[in-house]
């Protein structure tokens, strides 16, 4: 028990250290990029006095380490600063935008995990049949198409030509379908191959033969014994894939005019709106770190060999 406690203490400490590192990177990456936010906000004809006012207000004159200390101490207190572009608290902007992003990423994950796992199982139990080849083909197909182009293609066919869905924006469920598919299909392709390989490996194990020898139906053997065992390594696969889901959603939000964090992020980068970009980068990075922690926790739930150790 003590050993297990120590493991989790270490694991959580590591998560915190990662979070601090991530905040540093999120901060530096922006400040080391050329471009002066004050100039961008004010435009080319601003007076020097106005320029100095803006620089002072957002503490842009301070040395970078001092700026970081100001920022991070604010973050710890829950103050993410004020947007230079919108002149509103960053926390407020994020609060308005986080919902749509979570809905989009959640839908994309549901699409990718359910389809990926399903096609992986199907390809494994029907291996070397046309069905298996089809699963490979579609995976390579989705992986070969850049998401922004696929998004535009969907919009053109289903929005512009067939008029089944709105052309961008967030108007009800129909406008969610294609953004979610654009991200989800690509990740589905990413999950289906390893799922097939895991299933094939598990189906060759003695405990599968033993389960059949008991007289269980093949479908029962596959769904209960093989799937549960094959899913264990998939948890890591899925957690490791999350950054791509986030990255994909940033691009796709812009293509589909989805009013989430992704489009806010892109616009803020273009405007050198430091506080907003820093906050969103930090938030997404923490999301990834937490997902990895979650994967470790989930592991111990699904795999008794980990659960009971120590």
């Amino acid at each position: 028990m003590a050993k297990k406690k120590l493991f989790w203490t270490k694991r959580i400490a590591r998560t915190l250290i990662t979070a601090i590192g991530v905040s540093l990177v999120a901060f530096l990456i922006l400040h080391l990029t050329p471009g002066d936010p004050a100039r961008i906000i004010l435009g080319p004809y601003a007076t020097e006095a106005a320029y100095d006012r803006i620089r002072e207000r957002y503490r842009l004159d301070e040395p970078i380490p001092v700026q970081y200390i100001y920022w991070i101490s604010g973050v710890v207190r829950g103050d993410l600063g004020t947007s230079i572009r919108y002149n509103r608290p960053v926390a407020e902007l994020i609060r308005d935008r986080i919902g749509p992003t979570m809905i989009l990423m959640g839908s994309a994950l549901i699409v990718s995990i359910s389809l990926g796992v399903f096609l992986g199982i199907l390809a494994a139990i029907k291996r070397n049949t046309p069905l298996d080849y089809f699963a490979t083909f579609q995976a390579v197909f989705w992986l070969s198409i850049p998401p922004f182009w696929l998004g535009i293609l969907f919009l053109y066919i289903f929005g512009l030509q067939l008029r089944w869905v709105p052309i961008g924006g967030m108007v009800g469920f129909t406008s969610l379908i294609f953004p979610a598919l654009t991200i989800g299909l690509r990740d589905e392709a990413w999950f289906a191959r390893p799922m097939r390989a895991e299933m094939l490996e598990v189906l060759n194990q003695d405990y599968i033969k033993a389960a059949k020898a008991k007289g269980l139906k093949y479908s029962h053997v596959v769904v209960k014994h093989a799937l549960r065992n094959a899913l264990i390594p998939m948890i890591t696969m899925i957690a490791l894939r999350l950054p791509w889901v986030i990255g994909g959603s940033v691009v796709v939000e812009v293509v589909f005019s989805w009013g989430g964090l992704g489009s806010l992020l892109v616009n803020s980068v273009l405007a050198r709106d430091y506080p907003v970009v820093q906050a969103i980068l930090l938030l997404l990075a923490i999301l990834v770190v937490l997902a990895n922690l979650g994967a470790d926790l989930l592991y111990s739930v699904i795999d008794p060999r980990i659960r009971l150790e120590g």
Partner: peptide, 13 residues
């Protein structure tokens, strides 16, 4: 049927 390797013939999960 009982198999040769008891380490692998029971489902670990």
């Amino acid at each position: 049927m009982v198999f040769q390797d008891p380490a692998s013939s029971l489902d670990p999960v």
